[in-house]
Design a binder for these strands. Sequence first.
RNA 1: ACCGGCGUGGCGGAAUGGCAGACGCGUCAGACUCAAAAUCUGAUGAGCUUAGGCUCGUGAAGGUUCAAGUCCUUUCGCCGGUACCA
Length: 830
Amino acid sequence: MTTYHFKEIEQKWQKLWEEKKCFSAPNPTIDKRPYYILVMFPYPSGHLHMGHVRNYTIGDILARYYRRRGRAVLHPIGWDAFGLPAENAAIERGIDPGQWTMDNIKHMRGQLKMLGISYDWDREFATCTPEYYRWNQWIFIKMFEKGLAFRKKSPVNWCPKCATVLANEQVHNGRCWRCHTDVIQKELEQWFFKISEFAEQLLEDHKHLAPGKDQKGWPEEVLIMQKNWIGKSWGAFVDFEALEGGSKRAGTIRVFTTRPDTLFGATFMVLSPEHPMVEKLTTPDKKKSIETYREKARKTSKIDRTNIDREKTGEFTGSFAINPVNGNRIPIWIADYVMMDYGTGAIMAVPAHDSRDFAFAQKFKIPVIQVIQNPDQPLSLPLKEAYEGDGVLINSGPYDHLSTDESKKKIADDLKAKGLGEPTVTYKLRDWLLSRQRYWGTPIPIVYCPKCGAVPVKLEDLPVKLPANVKFTGQGDSPLKQSTEWVKTTCPKCSGPASRETDTMDTFVDSSWYYARYTDPKNEKLPFEAAQANTWIPVHQYVGGIEHACMHLIYSRFFHKVLRDMGLVKSDEPFASLLTQGMVTLGGSAMSKSKGNVVDPKTVVDKYGSDTARMFILFAAPPTQQLEWSDQQVGGIWRFLNRVWRLGQMFSGDEDAKSVKRSIEESSNVVSKEELTRMIHATIERVGTDIERDFGFNTAISAIMELVNAIYLYPDLGDDLSKEAVSATVQLLEPFAPHMAEELWEMMGNKSMLSQTKWPQVDKDKLLQKEIQIIIQVNGKLRHRINVPSQAKEEEVKSLALAAMEKRGQKIVPKRVIFVPHKLVNFVEN
RNA sequence: ACCGGCGUGGCGGAAUGGCAGACGCGUCAGACUCAAAAUCUGAUGAGCUUAGGCUCGUGAAGGUUCAAGUCCUUUCGCCGGUACCA
């Protein structure tokens, strides 16, 4: 009994593929249409984990399949190499983040090669090299020139003891992760990208991401999540006159409301604790309580603040506002359920028709005025809960008896006419804060000149390289400030003394356009050549985790539109189709180094080889589904591959290797020539449709398993038909288990490399069956099965079915008969 | 809390609204073997049974339909995201 010696075989083919550059992307032609398959590039954390294996195996199946379908395939890989973990490693172990990152890349590259993934390695790059990040800087400057990059003040998490900025991840329960000091919010001047300017386009262009003729499109759920994230809402701005302490005019407060129809029901106003007017409006007697409340709000997480079930809190400022439509004087409060970063940071509160406002009014004994009449319920006071539905206006002066729909528009228009507000649209999407007070990122290419202000570095002076002489202490703000030599420079405009920006860019900048760099990875004049990009982009299929649904996948769509407006790409969208792969979990949560629940793929690869590892992870669950790691089934895949191996050896010409052991005579399921012929073609068809229709890799594999089972139960093993069946098996197996498939293909006497051979063809005639099984239902319940000629017409099937039932002693007089061709007849008796 | 998703045998999972449990793991039995491993063959949701079948069964409760794992409503549990992890 021979077993499959995977080590030699896998090494042999990996070497051959690499030497012959089998997977270099060819130039697309008219007959060889492009297919760009992209997997989300890894952060080089040090080790490949099972989530990576899953991601890259899925990508490889598609690359190998479409290559054999005659497409020009671009399948690149690279490294998302800037980021926090390298800097943390530097702080903890005193090593150079660049060295740490490059060592990790080296190790992980080896692991990837070991998996036999068909990448075009010539296009590999890492984002932390100046050859890449100079183009981040180039794009940033172009955006700055167009006003798409700008500075404004924004809070950061600040640990007073470490005197450093903390990432959200480094804040645990409001405290610094290292020294446990209470974290405070500190305002810093920071750089933003004006993504909000693209909110409408980002929403509108979802239409390009629907399934279509040449694209599977994006999952509906991702589009919905993005839509909610962008959060468009129609409503009105309303300007309220503020009276400090109830009498002294203090300017206007603009609120945003989606319900201008309820304006007459506003009985108080709430400002976000961070609202700039709070200080001015706080009367001396309230100063202390307001200050305490603002302090508390600073420490409360956004998730808590927006929690509807949480008991409402707030403080009265001592000041009042005038409702512009009826002149009512209403108190101005502050409360943490109003967020500064949405709308205007201030709301008019209508307790009768908003449940949050209602809860607040109940707690603080603020009057409730009903202004919308619920058509399904008679007027009954006092209200027990807010009514948020539509209806007819009451208590609303000239607008009484109007419907909510009519009045929304009318009230907003009237406000505009009087200069007291206007109809408007707002978005939840906030501008992208890209400044990071860290070392291991792309330096923001700006110079501050006392005379000229913020001036971009000249394009020809790029890249602004990261300085080497920086110590990593975890203390102090931006580490680049230490490098005084580096900071000191001259103004690109006036040549006077100036200093560099010391913040670096968010790593999401790197990953927002890397897909385009792959099309022209060595370009030294531009981020990439438009001609190259337009050949391949939009990416035909993007594969990655669902956790990126809102951030990375919105940022890169935004960047693509910016690049389009610069003339670098033609398309509106970067990714035509998206496959969101499920997480690989252990103990219910995603595998991650920080949780320590990581399984090294090496354990499987060392024992069974990468073909088994690849097939196993695909077979365990459909790709979009979460996969709880368990290696229970690995042995099953290993056994299956060995079953195939032994079949292949039957036809290898090596007499000693013919070792298929069977006991056909004991089987009650022997397979005929006709059945095996049909199965060969049914399997070819099924594997193709499973891959193309819905990434059904697990069912494709089980179809191949069924074919192999059938071959084992075919009596004349060794004849031409069985050879054809084994050959088909090997060909269909290649995307999944490429090393073994190549080896068997060669052993069976083929000269071409299997991965370079056309995908097998289905002979539709061979799929036809003489008889098919029809199920008989009575009143929708399964009662019997019969075989009928596959050509049989409806009437014939019905009478055959009635006859079969009568033979079983059940005479049926149906009132109605449901007939589903090739499936069933259902006799309905009542 | 909000937005999105997922709940099917002992386990991973399969199933255009049309035979629930394909395929695999595990288990049991048989063959081969001095024996074991490996391999090959068969059986395997639960309950009942006069052995032909019958009843129940897809997190829970309702509903639509000739027919519901699949569609609708409510509900419970778990997972992802919530803007400085990537």
